[in-house]
């Protein structure tokens, strides 16, 4: 599966990226985690708040940093 963290480099985006990596490790799944910093690419997903979380090209969350537990639930739900 493919997970993307959308963010222009603010503190929250980095926190989310770390959270995603922890979640992926704990779930022991094969996933490609990518950070998208290019604003035009980010806007392609139509979010109005960063950070954004995209799983398999679907926006599942934007504008806040969820807990690792919530990230795991989101991954399970959208894989």
């Amino acid at each position: 599966m493919e997970i993307k963290v959308l963010g222009t480099g603010c503190a929250n985006c980095k926190t989310l990226e770390k959270g995603v990596q922890i979640a992926v490790e704990e779930l022991k799944i094969e996933a490609k985690v990518e950070k998208v910093e290019d604003i035009q690419k980010i806007m392609g997903y139509g979010i109005m708040r960063t950070p954004g979380l995209v799983i398999n090209e679907k926006v599942v969350l934007s504008g806040r940093v969820p807990s690792v537990k919530e990230i795991k639930e989101l991954i399970e739900k959208h894989k």
Binding site: T8, N12, C13, I39, I42, I47, R49, T50, G63
Partner: peptide
Amino acid sequence: TPFCSCSAIPLFFG
């Protein structure tokens, strides 16, 4: 509306 200056750009685009 929830706003943080780090989201100013996506908001502006929207």
